[in-house]
């Protein structure tokens, strides 16, 4: 996987992306960061954590924090039903679960289908958006999920003193 580029810039060769839906938007993340996909179960709430951190769950003996991406991205509604899905990510040996509305599919994107992201004003740190992918008439927002999850405002990692 030599094209897996830690810096998150667009890589040369085609790469596979897991795409998921948040409300009306479709996002793609590097499939190599995905450990597994599971149904949503109610996590144990953690006091004084940001609202988008739903809490922690027991993943086969490991305590894993769960982040609701819909709350993080200010989606209009965040319902929890039998279709709500948790994507378990493995980011540099830290395991994190993200809640999304649904997982669409895995697709391969060639570099020519990737466009650099325009400067956008959004709730996401713009450097975490690595680009836009177009597949037919669909637009994919490609995220550097690792950068997003380790950013300070995520509050997932203790800030070094």
């Amino acid at each position: 996987m030599s094209e897996t580029d830690e810096s998150g810039t667009l890589a040369a060769g085609p790469r596979e992306y897991l795409t998921f839906r948040l409300d009306q938007e479709e996002y793609g993340i590097d499939i190599l960061k995905v450990q597994e996909i599971r149904g949503y179960e109610k996590p144990t709430r953690i006091a004084n954590a940001p609202e988008f951190i739903k809490g922690v769950v027991n993943l086969r003996g490991t305590i894993v924090p769960i982040i609701d991406m819909r709350l993080k991205f200010n989606c209009a509604k965040a319902e929890y039903n039998s279709f709500t899905v948790v994507i378990i990510l493995n980011l540099r040996n830290r395991i994190v679960g993200i809640v999304v509305d649904s997982v669409s599919d895995v697709m391969e994107l060639a570099p020519e289908n990737l466009k650099a992201a325009p400067d956008i004003d959004s709730s996401i740190e713009s450097s975490a958006v690595v680009g836009l992918g177009s597949v037919g008439d669909r637009m994919l927002i490609l995220l550097d999920i690792e950068k997003l999850m380790t950013s300070v405002d995520m509050g997932l990692v203790s800030v070094e003193a």
């Binding site: 996590p43 144990t44 953690i46 006091a47 004084n48 954590a49 809490g55 922690v56 769950v57 027991n58 003996g61 490991t62 305590i63 894993v64 924090p65 830290r94 395991i95 994190v96 509050g155 997932l156 990692v157 203790s158």
Partner: peptide, 26 residues
């Protein structure tokens, strides 16, 4: 169980454990 393995230090909490029903308790 250590909370900081995948998360961060939580105030007033020293760790977490897994209850008999599989739930996490602080």
């Amino acid at each position: 169980k250590n909370l900081e393995t995948n998360y961060r230090k939580v105030p007033n909490v020293s760790g977490a454990t897994i209850l008999g029903d599989g739930k996490v308790a602080l």
